[in-house]
Computed example of a mutant assay.
Amino acid sequence: MTYMLMKVKRLTKTYHGQKVLSDLSFAVAKGELISLVGPSGCGKSTLLRCLAGLSSGTSGTIELNGEDITNRSTEKRPIVMMFQQPLLFPHLTILQNVTYGLKYQKPKVKKSERIERGLGILEKVEIASLAHRYPNEISGGQQQRVSLARALILNPALLLLDEPFSSLDPPLRTSLRKWVREFLKKEGVTALFVTHDREEAMVIGDRIAVMKDGTFQQFATPEEVYSQPENATVAGLFSEGLYNNRKFIQANKLKLTTVNKLLPADNERLSAVVEHKVMKYGYPFFRVSIPSIKQTVVIQSNQSFQENEAVDVYYKISDVSLITNL
């Protein structure tokens, strides 16, 4: 039976009469990585702040390791939060930055043990050679590894990451997120990871929580969120395909053809216009707009189509998924 490290029950946060978080209930298993995704202002960062104790919920409870920590102060919660910026002390070496939190732990940690643990965690995050450098002497990606090491050296029960890669350039961001997932899984760390990036959420999360207006729209595995969106919000944010009149069709089930071509009886069609062609992974893809439902979609096709050409998008009726909530 899976051990649920954290249980959140009916957590609500009201600010100036407006609900920022609305009746959130969920559980996180020990060692599980959860990606939180949603538009700006949907409550992702507020949720992390409430879990960390940096902000108080208006109602609801938070349990960690079977204990109610709802009213505990931040310093008494076994939770560490990583922010968008590394926030390293510029006058301290990398080793001193990493071990800084141990100086104030109770019971007190001896200096020799702090150094030993600091070098150990730097070795784990593969930057032990940088121990005696200063933050301005290392790269942005290395600074984020230092920030992660500083968080994990405190052995938190739960790690919260608030868009830690947002300031990095795309190639570095791509390589670092893969490394972070592998590292956290190897170390058995339980974490909640906030991101705006759909691909990043899928790479890092064992499950994904899609948020809008302070509520969960769907809380499921990456595969389920992508291929079986529960409503139009999730389909629009996460899935690739078309949704219309409570129907969702994945992009890989869509095909292109010339206008009014005879189709089998078990197919449906939508009129579309080709916007442009792009080559990806050695195949031609076409971005088409569908005026009747005001959507665009990218479809792979080996046929030849021109920009602004009228076409039909078609699909098998059996490939349609019904969306329960709009």
Rank of each mutant, 00 (worst) to 15 (best):
K124I: 13
S22A: 12
I249Y: 02
T12K: 06
R246C: 03
L158Y: 02
E137R: 05
F219R: 00
L51C: 11
P86K: 04
V225E: 05
D23I: 01
Q218E: 02
V180C: 12
R117F: 02
A29V: 01
R181S: 01
A235G: 09
L161Q: 09
S139R: 07
K247Q: 15
R207W: 08
L192T: 09
T14N: 06
L5G: 08
F238C: 13
L21A: 04
Q144F: 03
L5H: 06
E240P: 01
N65A: 12
L47K: 12
G57S: 14
R133P: 06
V28Q: 00
D169T: 09
A265N: 14
A27E: 15
T70G: 02
A128V: 12
V298M: 14
Q143V: 05
Y3P: 11
P291K: 08
G57F: 01
E309A: 13
F165K: 10
K212H: 01
T61N: 11
H132K: 02
G41R: 05
E75M: 13
E230A: 15
P264T: 07
N308S: 14
E307Y: 04
D319T: 00
M279C: 09
F216L: 07
S318Y: 00
K7H: 11
E123C: 10
L192R: 01
V288L: 14
K106P: 05
T14C: 08
I115F: 01
M81R: 10
H132N: 15
T93S: 15
P229N: 03
E113Y: 04
Y281F: 15
S112M: 01
I79H: 10
T46W: 04
R133M: 13
E137T: 04
G141I: 11
H196D: 07
V180Y: 06
D213C: 05
K44V: 08
G66Q: 05
M279H: 12
F89W: 14
L51F: 00
L256E: 01
G41Y: 00
S22C: 11
I249S: 05
